[in-house]
Computed example of a mutant assay.
Amino acid sequence: MTKLKTLTGLVTAAALAAFTGPALAANSDTLYVFNWSQYMNPEIIKQFEKKYDVKVVQSYYNSQPEMFAKLRAGGDSQYDIVVPSNYYVPRLIKTGLIQKLDKSEVPNYDNLMDRFKKPPYDPSGEYVAAYQWGDTGIAYNEKTLGEQPESWSILFDSKANPKYPFAMGTDAQVMFGSACASLGYSYNCEGRDKWKKAAQLILKTKQRANFSGFQDATPTLKQLARGNIAAGMAYNGDYAFDKSENPEGFKNIKFVVPKEGAELWVDSMAIPAHAPHPKLAHKFINFILKAKIGAELSNWNAYASPNKAAKPYLDKALTEPPIMPTDEQMKRLHFTPVLEGDDLQFVQQLWTEVQSR
């Protein structure tokens, strides 16, 4: 894997792009990508730039709400590629923030596994192309907390951790789903009564003296490696990536998929509604879906590939836990429900109350 210092340079370029995006968007030989941090192999970007004689400028986000807010604030006309998670795709479609793909410009779409071609969050298969997939679990310091069961009790039960700092996630639906699972409901629970009970559990947990705050999954792993917290929510691929980059810092950090149920997610490539360079965006999606490029991407960022053509080129580690869940773990994993209208507004208001109290 490429060292993280390479990413630092890309972040610097991204910061510049954030200030000059609308002006630079006039450049027809520049592609603007809005993606999760630590999620794209810099060598792939170099290959794309060389092949099409263009420049790629990347900007980053650490959460779905951050990405959504940026697009609604005009980012849909600043970026050419965005990478939303499954349950945000219908929201982006309904609000008109992304456009349909021209499949004639993306022949490598056929490389995707069948399950990703017309998924529940894009049943017509018209708006997105799968990028990577994985799960959200718990990372914790086994030396500090001792060996823990594969359970949400690591976060929600004060008996499991009475004194060491811990963090909870920032995404409303993922947190409510996790709390629902801890209470004995399914992770993909729906209904206002269940959401209220989940909110009560999170509030109770938040009031513990050793709660360090709500934190995105990627920074959580950095805090774990530094010893600043003892437990928090994390993505399986980020955990594997950071552990390979910093084996000493992660020698006592363990990742578990809670037995009560957890999030299964798929991140996909989409083109914002008013992307400045849609034709170049289609070329980029098609490039990422090439067999060897798809494998190169997963081999670098340590996430499972949705690309069936990439399978012969994948590292062995990507076929084993924590990257590839076991059959037993797959039974525990669920998509986060797609919420709309009054239900979505209710959950958002409830989450605002949880965070502010």
Score class of each variant (00 low, 15 high):
K3L: 10
L4R: 12
L4V: 14
A15I: 09
A17G: 11
P22L: 02
P22R: 05
D29R: 15
W36H: 10
S37C: 08
E43V: 08
E43I: 13
F48S: 08
F48P: 11
K50V: 09
Y52T: 01
D53T: 10
V54K: 10
V54G: 07
K55F: 07
V57A: 13
S59C: 10
Y60C: 06
S63L: 07
Q64N: 13
M67P: 07
F68L: 15
K70H: 09
A73I: 02
G74E: 09
G75N: 12
D76S: 14
D80I: 01
S85W: 15
I93P: 04
T95Q: 13
Q99R: 15
Q99V: 01
L101K: 01
L101Y: 02
N108H: 06
D110S: 11
F116H: 03
K118I: 01
Y121Q: 05
A129E: 08
A130L: 03
A130M: 02
Q132A: 13
G134W: 07
G134N: 07
A139C: 08
Y140R: 05
N141V: 03
N141F: 11
N141D: 14
E142N: 11
K143Y: 02
E147I: 11
P149E: 08
P149N: 07
E150K: 13
E150G: 07
S151Y: 11
W152S: 03
S153Y: 03
I154Y: 08
I154H: 09
L155R: 12
V174T: 14
F176V: 04
G177P: 06
S178T: 04
S178W: 01
A181W: 04
S186W: 03
Y187F: 08
E190D: 10
G191H: 00
D193Y: 00
D193E: 11
K196Y: 01
K197G: 01
A198I: 00
A199E: 00
Q200I: 01
K204G: 08
K206G: 02
N210C: 05
S212V: 07
G213N: 04
T220Y: 05
Q223E: 13
Q223A: 13
N228A: 12
A231D: 01
D238H: 13
Y239Q: 06
S244E: 15
E245R: 14
N246T: 02
E248A: 15
E248G: 13
G249Q: 05
K251E: 04
N252G: 02
V257S: 13
P258F: 05
P258G: 12
K259L: 09
E260Y: 05
D267M: 14
M269K: 10
P272E: 06
P272G: 06
P276Y: 09
H277S: 10
H277C: 07
A281L: 06
H282W: 07
N286H: 05
I288W: 13
E296Q: 14
L297N: 09
W300R: 08
A304I: 04
N307Q: 00
K308M: 06
L314S: 02
D315L: 08
L318P: 05
T319Q: 12
T326L: 04
T326G: 05
Q329P: 04
H334I: 00
T336R: 04
E340W: 04
G341A: 01
Q349M: 10
T352G: 15
Q355H: 08
Q355L: 15
